[in-house]
Computed example of a mutant assay.
Amino acid sequence: MPKLDYRNIEIDAERCGGQPVVAGTRIRVATILTCYRQGMSVEEITQQYSSLKPADVHDALAYAYDHIAEIEQALAEDDELIAKHKR
Rank of each mutant, 00 (worst) to 15 (best):
D79L: 03
I11N: 07
D78I: 01
G18K: 01
I71N: 12
A69T: 10
Q38W: 09
M40N: 09
Q19T: 03
R7M: 05
Q73A: 03
E10S: 12
E70V: 01
Y36H: 14
L33C: 05
R37G: 04
S51I: 07
S51A: 10
D5A: 11
A64R: 04
V57W: 12
T46Y: 06
A55P: 09
R15W: 05
V42M: 03
Q48F: 03
V42R: 12
R7C: 09
T31M: 00
Y65S: 15
A74L: 01
H67I: 00
R28I: 00
G39R: 12
V29M: 00
R26K: 14
M1N: 14
D12W: 02
K84Q: 15
I32A: 07
A62Q: 12
H58C: 06
Q19W: 00
A76P: 04
Y65V: 03
G18C: 00
E10D: 14
P54D: 13
I82V: 13
C16M: 05
Y63N: 03
L4P: 15
R28N: 08
K84D: 15
T34I: 00
K3N: 11
P2G: 11
I71W: 04
C16H: 01
E14L: 07
C35L: 14
T25H: 06
L75W: 05
K53T: 11
A23N: 09
Y36T: 10
P20N: 10
V42W: 07
L75D: 08
E72A: 03
G18W: 01
I71V: 14
E14C: 08
K53N: 13
